Computed example of a mutant assay.
Amino acid sequence: MSDTLYARVQAAAEDTSYRLRRTGRGFDMTVDVPGLGRNTTQVHTYRVELHPRDKTFTMTDIVRTHERGAFGTSTRTVKRGRVRYRTWSRSLDGSERTSFSSADGRRLIRGAAQELGWRELRPPTGKAALVFGAIGGLTALGTLIALAVVFWP
Rank of each mutant, 00 (worst) to 15 (best):
L50D: 07
Q42D: 02
T4V: 15
W118P: 06
G142I: 06
G26F: 00
V33H: 06
K127Q: 09
G117Y: 12
R80I: 07
E49M: 01
V149D: 05
R119Q: 03
R82V: 13
T4F: 14
E49W: 01
A12D: 09
Q10V: 05
G142F: 06
L5Y: 07
F71T: 13
F132D: 09
A12V: 07
T139N: 06
L121E: 06
A113E: 03
R119P: 00
V9G: 08
T4L: 15
R19L: 14
E14T: 10
D104T: 14
R80C: 03
L141T: 11
V83L: 06
L116D: 14
R21Y: 05
V78Y: 02
L5K: 03
V43H: 00
D61P: 00
A103T: 14
E14W: 08
G133E: 10
G35A: 08
D32E: 12
G35Q: 11
L121D: 04
G81W: 05
S91Y: 06
A112F: 10
G133Q: 05
L130E: 12
Y85D: 14
I62M: 04
T56L: 05
Y46R: 01
S95I: 11
G24R: 00
A112Q: 15
S17Q: 08
P52M: 06
W118D: 09
D28I: 00
E14H: 12
R107D: 15
L5V: 07
